[in-house]
Design a protein around this nucleic acid. Sequence first.
DNA 1: CCGTTGACCATAA
DNA 2: CTTATGGCCAACG
Length: 107
Amino acid sequence: MSVPPSDNFFQKVYATVSRIPRGRVMSYGQIARHLGAPRAARAVGYALRACHDPGLPWHRVVNASGGISSRARQSSLAVQRQRLEAEGVVFTEGKLDLSKYRYNPEE
DNA sequence: CCGTTGACCATAA
DNA sequence: CTTATGGCCAACG
């Protein structure tokens, strides 16, 4: 099928993020790599910042250290952690166990 | 087309 | 552990 002009990088990011199941998380770099752009982690974060879709589980996206990005809007910081904990994610020292909660779309 | 920005990542000291 | 630097990519004016 042809690739519509709406097939922006953002759109792919949103699609991948929306596929993250409840109680799981993905890192920006992991998403970027899944999209075929292993170096576009920054663009992933940029996409999430630009999007304000209430149905998008953006809170399931964390950095490679398993922590919540400190460079996000402070208004969203508390919300993200709160939502993750509501999904059963346990934070330790302000971070979560990526090896435990990381979601692989290939599985 | 160029410069700036940005919710990143890896490496080095 | 922290701080600093470079790279990398995409969107916007």
